[in-house]
Nucleic acid binder design. Structure first.
Lengths: 249, 249
DNA sequence: CACTATTTTGCGGGTTTATGCACAATTGCG
DNA sequence: CGCAATTGTGCATAAACCCGCAAAATAGTG
């Protein structure tokens, strides 16, 4: 990995999360502590970031124009994202839906990961496209205004052409008896196609959506292999899903 | 292998992967390290790439990806965008490429316009999706890191399925004798398909790209119906293009 | 075709850069 | 205060860079 590339990534991370820990970075980028420290130093000298003990802070507060992207439950979604990326190995084909949780996962992908990501979500695709080493495949069709995703028969057909290793879906509602449900028919059809085209299905959701229902059913619990929330796997709220045979992370 | 050929290949690689390592290149092309380094140096002097220790980076990588720098020549592009939207009428099917100029056009669309926009550019699609009344169709395929567009045979095939009224292309180089040219083979193929699938082709560019050339030819001047720059239509710089039968706006 | 001029390429040096490691000094938190 | 984490410094090493030069390829010319 080139030095400039690395520093650009660091800058990106800092501006994204407002702060960054040196240890996190050197684990993520897979270089020595010293290198990271030197990078932070250089960036700080150029005024791009503000270096502090143990890491660095964004300077965008002082520069003027900054608006913290108000992602709902951002911290929780970062926890979920970190758990999710641990499932992805080099060389995998990964189908994903959209939503803020998926975007968060995209940002948390280790820089040296080499895999192929397939999605119809414009926002997710843009995040994937920023990653230096992964291949990105866009699913095309009519774009839904609300979800910013390609949805329709053409996209569904395209999804079916792939047989991916993993499928990550941000879900809106999960219930022990009714399974996964959602409120947009077109999105649901896309999700169903993705589930069918993958060896394993991973559902991501913040815990407040646990035990809730939406009008349209996506799939049964038995179709879900792994469920990731921000809670520890042994949390009592999740017990019914463990009993249903789902792996909790 | 010819020097020119080699440099075109390098440029392609850089734009495709956003970066390139000198070692990789000299192994792949089978020339000495020094030759590659000299090539990179020349390309860097021309401003086509950014040279760094160990290889080179795409300049779009630097400009567009991590640091959301202000759009280059933003004011000019807004002028161009205003002119461009005046061509679009209710009910039209419009094919567009990507780039900052196209995104600017997307933002300039009147709110009551009802039309259908088709594109492979993720950033352009996102802008279109914000509009309340237009239909948006995404072209899917492998996503190019540099241009953030879907490019490849699948996308080209999809484009050919449409017969649109207008095609808007942001262009990188136009010359009175050599026509339109660009530096990324895959993007060029996509642009060609779009031109063929449209009744009228509209090229958008800031005036500083007038009378410049890039390695790969997109099309002849005769394939262009309308050329939009920020200059008035009767500006002397544009005269050769008016003489070639192009409508200037 | 022979001959020259120019460009391009590869190679051998000495120099610079990038990175990791060791170790001591410093920081900051409980 | 004690202790672990973080930092600064010096050093080693491998890789990448610069420079000049000569061989090879290319182009031009009478």
């Amino acid at each position: 990995m080139l030095k400039q590339e690395r520093q650009a990534y660091i800058l990106h991370q800092v501006n994204l999360h407002n702060k960054v820990l040196a240890v996190d970075l050197c684990q993520h980028i897979n270089v020595s502590n010293d290198t990271i420290r030197r990078d932070l130093q250089e960036l700080a000298e150029k005024g791009s970031i503000i270096k502090v003990h143990g890491g660095a802070l964004s300077n965008s507060f002082h520069n003027g124009n900054f608006q913290p992207e108000p992602i709902y439950s951002h911290a929780k979604k970062q926890v979920i994202a970190r758990k999710a990326v641990s499932l992805i190995k080099d060389g995998m084909f990964v189908l994903t839906g959209g939503g803020t949780t998926i975007s968060e996962m995209a940002r948390a992908l280790p820089l040296d990961l080499t895999a192929t990501f397939i999605s119809g979500s414009l926002t997710a695709l843009l995040e994937y496209a920023k990653h230096p080493n992964i291949d990105v495949i866009a699913i095309g069709d009519k774009v839904s205004k609300g979800s910013k995703m390609s949805i329709g028969p053409d996209g569904v057909m395209k999804v079916r052409q792939f047989k991916s290793d993993l499928c990550f879906l941000g879900i809106n509602a999960i219930d022990a008896t009714d399974g996964i449900s959602d409120n947009d028919l077109d999105v649901v059809q896309m999700k169903r196609a993705m589930i069918e085209s993958s060896k394993q299905t991973v559902c991501l959701t913040i815990s407040e959506k646990i035990n809730s229902r939406q009008p349209i059913k996506v799939c049964d619990l038995k179709d879900v292999d792994i469920l990731i929330t921000e809670l520890p796997a042994d949390h009592p709220l999740l017990k019914p899903y463990a009993d249903a045979g789902i792996i909790l992370i």
